[in-house]
Structures are given as C-alpha cells and as structure tokens.
C-alpha cells in the first residue's frame, strides 16, 4: 500500500487538472493516489456513468462500445460505484485503458468494499484514485452529486450507459452539458423502464452512439483502419455461415442448431471460437453479432 500513498494537489498547483479549473465551483484541491503526471491527463478523457443496477443489455452495450476504442489515446473516468461504474473500470482495465476513479468519500476509504480488488488493480495498472475529501470521510447523500460534478468536469465527453429516472447519472449528464461537454448515450427501447434517463437526455441534449468509432470521432480522434473485415475473411466456411446468420438474427443455441443443421457440439465449438475472436457475444443464452 505504501507504494500508492495519497497526496494533495492544490487548486493552484500545476498538477491540478486544467479541465477542472474551468468549471463553476471547482474543488479547492484534490486528494490523489497514483501518478497524475504520468500523462494520463493528457489523453482524451471519456466519462462513463450509469445505474448501480446494470441490465444485461447495458452490460453488452458497454462491452461493445469499448471494443474498438483507441486504447492509446483515451483515459476513462467513472465513479467507482457498483453497476455501470464498476463495469466501466473493469472493461477499461481489461483493454489496458488507464482509468480514473472519483470517490464520493475520503481518499483512504474503499467504498464499496466489494471493489477492494478493483481499487488495487486500478492503481497497479497506472490509473488514479481521486477525491476531494480527506482521510476516511464517509460518503453522504450530498457527496455523490459533488463527485458527479468532478467527473463531468474532468471528461471531454460523457457516456451515459444506463440512467434511471431522477438518477445520479442524470445529474452528471446535466453538469456535463452545462460545462459544455458532449453527452453521449446508448439508444434503448422506449419501454425500458430502468433506462428511461437515456431517453430523457437523448430528447434534450445527448447524442446517441452505437459504435466505438463514433466515440473516437466525437473525442476528436482519428479511427484506425478497421480490422474486422480481415477477421471475417479468415473465418472457415462454417464460422462464416454462423456469423452471417447471427448478424441477421440473434439466436440461442437450440435455434441455431436446428436452423443451420449443426449438432449441438459443433454449434458450441463454433460459438466459442467466434466469441474468442470477438465477433459475437452472448447475453443470457442469446448470441449476437457485434456491429462494427
């Protein structure tokens, strides 16, 4: 732990994030763990926020939108809470994207405790833990919106993955909009009660995204040439057949094996291989092809 002791960055310090200086009511200083001068703040910063309870759809969408992010030019920032925040941090770490966790509590308090290992991992992979509260200050109702304003201030664009009605994610979205940041959200069904916030901000000021390259572009980055076509051309005939069939219609294994006339063992093997290649993903029994 001694490797990552916390330090204080004053508002007037050169290490203090420039983007935060521009918002109204910026924190007087920040308690930080990890190396803030490692260049992590010089990348484009993508804020990712959302509900504590993440639906299967949002989870898949999150993974999908991270697939082709430019890992060498982007940093993510999120709120370290369980649900969307945790998934966003994890997905970043899995893809070697540095990630910043902004805490609603004192810098020394790991909250929620279930994220103990995530906390260590973020630091070990060169990320930052950040808070405007010292020591082991407990989180209070009002510390959450304060943390949200920091996230909104830090990021260049904010991705709202899944927001419920009157949720904290909406507060973050409104802050970001107020600070002049681009707010992005994921299109959802108009009947999806747990994601109605996405629709609300979509109606007011947010932009819908469904591909990671759109996020890259909106952050002002240039997309590299897509490798997907290469991958597809390398598939065997059976794999291609399955991939094309999934592109048209998501399906479960039973349906696939009867439609394509493969045995259950053949289908299982093909699905695993396509999943490893990153061309399809599973969501509670149903397989979907990734759209690039």
């Amino acid at each position: 732990m001694s490797k990552f002791s916390s330090y204080y960055v004053d508002f007037d310090s050169t290490a203090y994030p420039q983007s935060l200086k521009l918002i109204k009511n910026p924190p007087k200083g920040l308690y930080i763990k990890g190396d803030i001068d490692s260049g992590i703040m010089n990348r484009k910063i993508l804020g990712v926020v959302g509900s504590r309870k993440i639906s299967e759809y949002s989870k898949s969408a999150l993974v999908h939108l991270f697939t082709n992010l430019l890992v060498n030019e982007i940093t993510t920032v999120s709120g370290f809470m369980y649900g969307v925040d945790t998934e966003a941090h994890k997905e970043s770490l899995n893809r070697s994207i540095p990630t910043i966790a902004v805490l609603p509590c004192g810098i020394e308090l790991i909250h929620p405790t279930s994220n103990y290992f995530l906390y260590q991992r973020i630091l070990e992979q060169g990320g930052l833990i950040m808070s405007e509260y010292e020591g082991t200050t407990a989180p209070k109702k009002w510390t959450y919106p304060n943390r949200n304003r920091i996230i909104a201030g830090l990021c260049d664009a904010l991705l709202v993955v899944q927001a419920g009605e009157n949720s904290g994610s909406l507060i973050t979205a409104h802050y970001a909009n107020e600070f002049g940041k681009q707010v992005l959200t994921i299109p959802v069904s108009i009947f999806a009660g747990s994601s109605v916030g996405n629709l609300q901000i979509l109606h007011k000021f947010a932009r819908a995204v469904y591909l990671s390259r759109q996020i890259n572009t909106l952050l002002g980055l240039e997309n590299t040439k897509d490798a997907e076509n290469d991958l597809i051309s390398q598939l065997t005939n059976e794999e291609k057949l399955l991939y094309i069939s999934l592109k048209d219609n998501p399906a479960n294994t039973d349906v696939l094996s009867s439609q394509l006339n493969f045995s259950s063992s053949e289908i299982s093997a093909l699905l695993t291989i396509l999943t490893i290649k990153g061309l399809i993903y599973e969501e509670s029994g149903f397989y979907h092809a990734r759209q690039s």
């Binding site: 093997a269 093909l270 695993t272």
Partner: peptide, 21 residues
Amino acid sequence: TIADLEHNALITSAHIAEALQ
C-alpha cells in the same frame, strides 16, 4: 469427456471449444 464420447484419445481444439460453453 467430450473426446471420450468421440472415442478420440487426443483432445482437439473442437473439444476445448465445446467445453468452454
């Protein structure tokens, strides 16, 4: 076990891929 079901003494990638499911 999948290899045994096919009377195959060697585990192939197809067996591993199915087992992963």
